[in-house]
Computed example of a mutant assay.
Amino acid sequence: MANQVEPRLIKPLYDEMQKERFVTLATIDFETSGPNVSAISWVLAKDDSTLYFAVDNRSRILENINKNNKVVINLIANESTYSIQGEAQLKEERLQDVPLKLALVEVTIREVRDVMFYGSKIVTEVQYDKTYDKNAAEKLDRQVMEAMKKA
């Protein structure tokens, strides 16, 4: 049976991407032309065909996107695993109202593919803990997500 393919986010995925969450981002490395995978958490669905994510404005991710704007975001949600393929572009060099120097990247979604292997489902989603000051982490997370919502 073929995996489901959609041209945009389905509602359960859109809803899941309204809060900070763990995803992986695949880009093409600007030096090696090979795959490069990063874990990020500041990601937001602006609408069902647009994602925003924030990264340090010195990140290799930005150099990679500058040379080749094709990206894939891997999302575990809705009891499955999804590959969200799109084209990325720098939207803001410096995200406003955030104390860190973060860049805002916009991803135009081209395809959302359920890539979970046949006959299985995710029963536990990825969880993580911030390893620095919890209050500072929560405050920064709120600032970043609010700034992305305003963008």
Rank of each mutant, 00 (worst) to 15 (best):
M148H: 03
D48G: 07
Q85L: 05
T32P: 06
D133C: 12
F53W: 08
E92T: 04
K134N: 15
Q143D: 13
T24W: 03
A2Q: 12
N3I: 05
E87V: 06
V98K: 00
I109M: 03
L104E: 02
E16D: 15
I10D: 02
T50K: 03
S33C: 06
M145A: 05
E93L: 03
K121H: 15
I76G: 11
D133Y: 07
V115F: 03
A77C: 15
E92A: 13
E20R: 14
A137T: 10
L25W: 07
T124E: 14
L44S: 02
M17K: 01
E146T: 09
V72G: 00
N66G: 13
L51Q: 04
T131E: 07
W42P: 00
K46G: 04
R94V: 06
V112Q: 01
A136N: 09
V105D: 02
V5A: 14
S120C: 11
E63W: 00
K70F: 03
S38E: 10
Q89S: 12
Q127R: 14
L9M: 02
I73L: 15
E111K: 12
R94M: 05
A137D: 13
M145T: 02
N36D: 13
I122S: 15
K11V: 04
L62H: 04
A2E: 09
A136Y: 06
A54L: 08
Q18I: 04
D29T: 05
K134R: 12
L13E: 00
N57D: 14
E6H: 15
